[in-house]
Design a protein around this nucleic acid. Structure first.
Lengths: 153, 153
DNA sequence: GCTTGCCTCTACAGCGACTGTAGAGTTTAT
DNA sequence: ATAAACTCTACAGTCGCTGTAGAGGCAAGC
């Protein structure tokens, strides 16, 4: 007996919000499930496994497009593992790059905060550190407008 | 003689793209500058300082709303420095939290990749690690649907 | 004066990955 | 029978920009 899951049950089982599950369906990441006569979605164990896979990959920061590729590979399990490995390695490289950026941010924020003596805003070290024309971080203020600002948080 | 800067000059001076400067104007982060008779924007040194401040704060990951608050504080420099300090500390806490998350991702990705023996996709360790129902990272799969998936990269 | 080539203008759509809302219908529990 | 909880669709909004289209402006060289 294959368990019949409504979208809410599936949501609680996987930790993916109901609206997000429907969104994944609209973008083709989840296949359209069967419906009851009244039109409610009914999911099986395969759907749950797939959603769990997606959730885990998203938690690791893989973009949706990459997950789409991984699923395509999954469906064709005879192929070489290299592409999967490459995707994971690429992701690891991205994560490490972001880690370095964040560590730099951490250092600068620490420096700013420790300099704050708690006076008035007019003489606040944090403020003057910010007003300082971006010397500390990545000061490309001379030549090119390569203004890729660090993607937030 | 106050230098008259067109938007392109300002852009090159600060490393903020022309379109982004105009965007900051529409959202009220930059004040509307003077215009030539033909309608082109003309900026002064104050505008450049303000834009440099914004750029630096954005590079540190402060959200635009927070920068708006900081600018409001800046305009009123007699007030206590506490709120500025608090904003910076909050940001530091956010950065550190994100650092921890990313380190966890790094560890899990390393583990996945080192387990990959390079066979076929059907038996790929990376794939089965992903299919594994989210045990490793933050397995809130029991009770609540608190599905805040780690914000990507 | 005229052309060339870059610069600037406005207005609006699109990105990624969802989230929120409105308004209506369905299922389950009491 | 009724209330509570769930589900449906469709679409707008989020954040911080980026890209596009089509039109007009400006300095330098001829």
């Amino acid at each position: 007996m294959t368990k019949r899951r409504t979208i809410g049950v599936l949501s609680r089982a996987t930790g993916v919000k109901v609206t997000t599950i429907r969104y994944y369906e609209t973008i083709g990441l989840m296949p359209p499930p069967e419906r009851t006569t009244s039109g409610q979605r009914v999911y099986d164990a395969d759907a749950q496994a797939r959603l769990a896979f997606i959730r885990h990959a998203r938690a690791l920061g893989f973009p949706v497009e990459t997950i789409r590729e991984l699923i395509a590979l999954q469906i064709d399990p005879g192929r070489d593992c290299d592409s999967v490995d490459a995707v994971a390695r690429k992701r690891l490289a991205d994560v490490r790059e972001r880690l370095e950026q964040l560590k730099a941010l951490e250092r600068e924020l620490e420096r700013m905060i420790s300099a704050c003596a708690g006076g008035r805003v007019g003489s606040c070290a944090v403020m003057s550190a910010l007003a300082d024309h971006g010397q500390c971080l990545h000061d490309d203020h001379g030549h090119a407008g390569g203004g890729t600002i660090a993607t937030a948080t």
